[in-house]
Amino acid sequence: MKRNYEALFGAFYERYFDFKSQGISNAEALVCTSEAYFGVQKRGEMEKAVVVIAEGRIYLTHSKIFINSKERIVNLLKGLDLEKLQLETTSDEYQDILERRDMVLDGIESIPVDHSPFARWYYNEMEKEVKNYFIEIFVNTNDASEIIEKIEERFERECRSTWSENIVVKTTLAELLIRHSNKPENEFLSLKIELERFDMNEIGQLLTESEKFDLSIRIKEVLSKI
Rank of each mutant, 00 (worst) to 15 (best):
G56A: 05
V139R: 15
R72M: 15
I137F: 04
H62Q: 14
E127K: 15
E129M: 08
E187T: 13
K225D: 12
S161M: 11
L195I: 04
L195T: 02
R100T: 01
V169C: 03
F118R: 08
E158I: 01
V130M: 09
I151G: 05
I217F: 13
R57E: 15
E125H: 11
L173D: 07
M200R: 02
S91K: 13
R72S: 12
S110T: 13
S21F: 05
E55M: 11
K2C: 00
H115F: 13
F38S: 12
K183H: 09
R15M: 10
F155A: 07
G23P: 05
V168G: 02
R15G: 01
E158Y: 01
C32S: 15
R160Q: 12
M1G: 11
V168D: 04
I167P: 02
Y37A: 05
D143L: 03
E156G: 00
Q95I: 00
A29L: 09
F17A: 02
E45D: 07
R57A: 06
H180I: 00
P112Q: 09
E211V: 09
N182F: 10
D102K: 12
G10W: 02
K220S: 14
E152V: 00
F17W: 13
F17M: 12
V169G: 04
R160V: 01
Y122I: 05
E6R: 08
D102Y: 11
D92R: 10
I178Q: 15
K220M: 05
L105E: 09
K150N: 06
